[in-house]
């Protein structure tokens, strides 16, 4: 099946505005045309994203791609117009606009893919850090890996709050998509990422102190990063 192009009416095509922000922000015919062109652009970007993730889409027909893409484009358009004043021209307007559609479409596909799957916060189970059946190295490396897994389990219980542990398990062990988890918990992607960042920082610091990890290299970009937590995350 070839890549389906989401359809946009003929009136959406033709020359794009030379100044999108001006065209979109000035009431009148030009604004109406620019709005249609923008929506068409977002639909096509959203369709691109849905197609990329088609293995997650039930019954991935061109019609289904269109349906998801149009829904995502509608939401993306609202979000974009609310942030139109933030466009600074450091990239092409179309590139800037595309990202709103891609983000929304990707999130929508993930939400739909997980809609029938229960997501529950749980604590670490000893089997979570089991090693894969096939791994490199001999018995000595296997013993080291098992020792590290055991140390990790201890560190998770000693260094993390229950919430941090649950979020780390959900995102990094169960691999629940971050936006799916955020929606289920009524929080944001950013808040969850902050939580898992803090968790990783603490775990690396603890395992380094215990001698299981090498000391981090002191580069300009990395200096100080391992000991400074960002502002407290919720809850």
């Amino acid at each position: 099946m070839t890549h389906p192009s989401a359809h946009a009416p003929a009136t959406d095509r033709g020359a794009e505005p030379t100044d999108w922000v001006l065209a979109l922000g000035t009431p009148g015919h030009e604004q109406t045309v620019a709005m249609r062109q923008l929506h068409g652009l977002l639909v096509r970007a959203a369709a691109h994203q849905v197609w990329r993730m088609r293995s997650l889409v039930d019954g991935c027909s061109p019609e289904r791609v269109d349906e998801i893409a149009n829904g995502a484009a509608d939401v993306a358009m609202t979000t974009l117009l609310g942030k139109l004043h933030t466009f600074e021209g450091h990239s092409r307007f179309t590139t800037w606009a595309y990202k709103f559609a891609l983000l929304q479409a990707a999130s929508d596909v993930r939400q739909q893919a997980w809609r029938r799957q229960e997501v529950r916060l749980r604590d670490l189970d000893p089997s979570d850090l089991q090693l894969p059946d096939r791994r490199p190295g001999g018995p000595e490396q296997e013993a080291e890996a098992l020792d590290l897994a055991s140390a990790m389990a201890r560190a998770m219980h000693e260094c993390l709050t229950a919430y941090q542990r649950q979020i780390a398990v959900a995102l990094l062990v169960d691999e629940v998509p971050i936006d799916v988890l955020a929606a289920r918990l009524g929080t944001t992607r950013g808040a969850l990422y902050k939580t898992v960042h803090v968790a990783r920082t603490r775990l690396r610091a603890e395992l380094t102190a215990m001698g299981y990890l090498d000391e981090p290299r002191a580069t300009g970009a990395a200096a100080g990063q391992h000991t400074t937590d960002p502002a407290p995350e919720q809850p």
Binding site: L129, L131, L148, M152, G190, R200, R204, L207, A221, Q225
Partner: peptide, 23 residues
Amino acid sequence: MTTPEFSTALERLLLEDGPYLSC
């Protein structure tokens, strides 16, 4: 001791994610 190089939950937990930068 360096982290064993195979893709597992353990590796994801220990992944070096640099100075904090939000989504």
